[in-house]
Design a binder for these strands. Structure first.
Length: 279
DNA sequence: ATGGCGTTGGAACAACGA
């Protein structure tokens, strides 16, 4: 079974590219982030024509997470326990709206999450505090789940908006005083690893960036960042037989600014078989 | 030091991004 995560930077602007890649790369399950549309705006038909069902979470033109899968998905869940909300100008009621940043599904007894971690904007900005609180709640929910399901495969997949290592950005000097590399953000990422997850892609020796800004020829100069990850439980880690960062997807016409990250699991599915399912 | 570019809503520009 081959699963992937990809911040697509608008599913409507890139529907053809995404579906083409799913087929070309033989992907069974894709976690998407930054779909940038409401549920009823999602191009469901294009995925279904290619043999993929979708689970979609989106409330407006920002954020948005989804799954496309050619294997059955079950137990969809929007958000996680105590996930904080955000508003630039908090309403009088004090109830902050929840954003479309987390969606969970189960496929072949593997629990999968598509996560779009808040950007943070600037150190000291309310959005930065929101980012850290969001990551704390994610950690708490993940640790609780692992406590209840210690032997089950789980993967948190998505755009974490954190570069955990100095080598995960092209030049640390360019990030002085900026988000994505600050110690509290890196501590929050490390806490997920300490909580029982493994960076299954890095652990298999796969190197390179997953994001390059559109501006200033950043891709051509390889001025990128590694901020998209697949973090797996021990049971998930044991299943991983291959991992890759699909750098070529940053090229061509109208690419996303992120590329897909893929892992192959040692799970036999009907899709591994070229014979028809029904004789 | 700044902008570079791209997407969305909604019809000019603001919000957002990392």
């Amino acid at each position: 079974m081959r699963i992937a995560t990809w911040n697509v930077n608008s599913v409507r602007a890139r529907t053809g590219r995404i579906v083409d890649w799913l087929e070309r790369a033989d992907i069974d399950v894709l976690a998407m982030q930054e779909t940038k549309c409401k549920v009823d705006q999602f191009p469901v038909g294009a995925f279904e024509e290619a043999g993929y069902e979708v689970e979609v979470h989106g409330t407006n033109q920002w954020n948005g997470v989804a799954f496309a899968s050619r294997l059955p998905m079950s137990e969809p869940r929007v958000g996680f326990a105590n996930m904080p909300g955000y508003a630039n100008t908090p309403p009088e009621s004090g109830e902050l709206p929840l954003e479309a940043r987390a969606l969970g599904v189960t496929v072949e007894d593997v629990r999968l999450w598509s996560l779009y971690v808040p950007n943070g904007r600037e150190l000291g900005h309310p959005h930065y505090a929101y980012k850290l609180a969001w990551l704390r709640a994610l950690l708490d929910d993940t640790v609780a789940w692992l406590g209840e399901h210690p032997d089950e495969p789980l993967a948190l997949m998505g755009d974490f908006n954190i570069a955990p290592l100095d080598t995960d950005v092209w030049d640390m000097a360019a990030f002085d005083g900026l988000t994505h590399v600050s110690p509290p953000e890196r501590d929050a990422f490390q806490a997920l690893l300490d909580g029982g997850l493994v960076d299954v892609v890095r652990d298999r020796g796969e190197e390179g960036f997953t994001y390059w800004d559109y501006k200033a020829g950043r891709f051509q100069r390889n001025h990128g960042m590694r901020i998209d990850f697949i973090l797996g439980s021990a049971a998930f880690d044991e299943l991983v037989v291959d991992a890759s960062i699909e750098r070529d997807e940053r090229g061509g016409d109208a690419p996303s600014d992120h590329v897909p990250v893929v892992v192959e699991l040692d799970i036999e599915t009907s899709m591994d078989d070229d014979r028809p399912m029904i004789f």
